[in-house]
Structures are given as C-alpha cells and as structure tokens.
Design a protein around this nucleic acid. Sequence first.
DNA 1: CATGCAAATGCAAGTGAGTTGCAACTGGCG
DNA 2: CGCCAGTTGCAACTCACTTGCATTTGCATG
Lengths: 147, 147
Amino acid sequence: MKRSRRHSDSLGRASALLRDHGLKKTRPRIDVLSLLLSARKPLSHHEIAGAIPGADKVTVYRVLSSFLEHSIAHRIETGDRVWQFAVCPCGHTEHCHPHFSCRKCGKMECLSDVKLPRWSRLKPGRVVENQEIYLHGLCASCRKEGA
Amino acid sequence: MKRSRRHSDSLGRASALLRDHGLKKTRPRIDVLSLLLSARKPLSHHEIAGAIPGADKVTVYRVLSSFLEHSIAHRIETGDRVWQFAVCPCGHTEHCHPHFSCRKCGKMECLSDVKLPRWSRLKPGRVVENQEIYLHGLCASCRKEGA
DNA sequence: CATGCAAATGCAAGTGAGTTGCAACTGGCG
DNA sequence: CGCCAGTTGCAACTCACTTGCATTTGCATG
C-alpha cells in the first residue's frame, strides 16, 4: 500500500531527523514530524493537532517551535493570521520559495522550483535576509472544474 | 512648514477620495485616511489608533475595512500576525509590489518599482489572483550604522 | 431650514491563534 | 539503575481582531 509505505518511511525519516538535530525522540515530536513529512505540503497548527488523536495543542506549538529553531521545518503566514508549517521536499530550511494556495479547494503548495529576482540587486543598500512570498488564486484542477 | 503643508494636502486628498468612492465624510474616516496619506508607508492598526487622539479602536478597524473594500488602501501581513495598512503613492489598489521591513529600525517601505516574475508563466495551469511579497532584513541606513 | 433614515459610530463583550507558568514526567546518559 | 535537563500537559493568559447593539450623524429630500 502506497500510503502506509510512505507513512512508515516518514516515521523512519522523522527519527533520523530528530537524532541528527540532537532532539530527544518523544511521542509528540515523532507524531508531528512524520505527519509533516508525509503531508508534503504546509499544514496549520489546527490541522496538525487535529490529525494526531490526543495531542495537546500547547505541546504541538512547542514541538513546532523547536523544529523552527533547528531549521527542520519552516513557517509560512498566508494572510489570514494563521501560520502554516512545512518540511519542504527541497530540504531548504529558509522559506526561500513562494507558496501558492487555492481560494477554492484551500490546498497549499510549495513552489520550490521557481526562480526569484535578486532583491539586493534590485534595491541596492538593503540586505534582504528573509522573504515571504505568498500567491493566492486558483489551482490547475479547480480551474478546470470552472470556478 | 513642509509638514503642515503635507498634512493639509492629505486632508484635501482624503476628502476627495472619500467623495469619489461614495463614502460618507466622517471624522474617523478623514482622520485615518489623511494619516495614511501623509505617512507614505504602511502603518499598523495600533499605530493608526495611537496617532489619532480619542479614536475608538473598533471604529478604526471598521474604517480600515471599508477602505479595503473600496480599494482605497491595501493590507499587508508582515509575519508577526499584525496587519499593516497603506495607501501607496503608486496608486495601486492591489498590493502588487513587495514590501520591505527593517529588523533594526522597524521601518517598512513599499517597493513599488520592483519588477516581478510572471507567476502564471512560471507555473502554468494556476491562476494567480493575488500576491503578498514580504522582504525582511536591514535597510540602507541601519546597515551603514553597522548592525 | 427641518426631517428622516441608512449608514456609521462607540462601547462592551466575544473569538481564536498563539503564549506563559508550573508541576509532573521521561529519554537517554553515566 | 538512577538521575536530571529537557519535555510534556494542563490551566490561565495575551492580544489582534470581530460581533452585537443602542445611539448618533451625514446627507438626500421635501
């Protein structure tokens, strides 16, 4: 089964990631990290806590914060004052790429392969240390259905 | 005095803008709009309400919402879950341009003249209707001071 | 200029994402 | 095995923003 295979992969990858970053291997951390790994798209705290039966919401916040500190995951803000969290397949720890979300189905994707302008060249003098690019619109499948 | 001249300009422009959009000319609307016009940079609700003595915070939220609805102002989210509001000099009502904020002095600017990639070409199939680009780093003057 | 009323205001109370304090627990080291 | 720094989980908090509702007001109309 594809799904369970991916899930067990995620469990293994989660353990390895925690070990590599010197984080204790605890139940909440394994649960949250393997969920993020198998999701392959950004998830909100609400989605994460909801997908893990019995999860404590504060613990989930703290687990996510520790992932951010260790650059295991990154955080996106989508304009509705709710954070989304993701471990991107590209392995980038800074959210160097744009994120797209569909106004119809709500799905969000990381556009990891998009080339971006060199901000510092465009605006000499400033140093851009961090960026957040958020695109909103219709995804390919919702567009076909006709919105 | 340059400052008061700009302020009275803003008062006149504010009245004109309200009239043009069919909005009643009320005290809170005049106050908020002329403040945004003279600020020439994004301001948070907190900054706006703080700068207008006796302003009711709920009214300020509602005034800002009506400006958004009528595309007089636009709203930016900077990553700290606090909205910023601006009437850009370029006159664009969609926030089509990136915003930059300095991590040292906190100042935020609209980068109205920056050319952006054509998202739809980069990611065929999707329709990008709205974008939010937020850059964070050091502005030119804070960089010189050495941070 | 007086009048009416839809729209706007202002106060109080509510919502919800995220945070803090603190006592109890536990992974993983010696 | 036993320790303890790091982690968890519960309750209570913060704070940006929203909603409900009674009162006021801009402005169109007679």
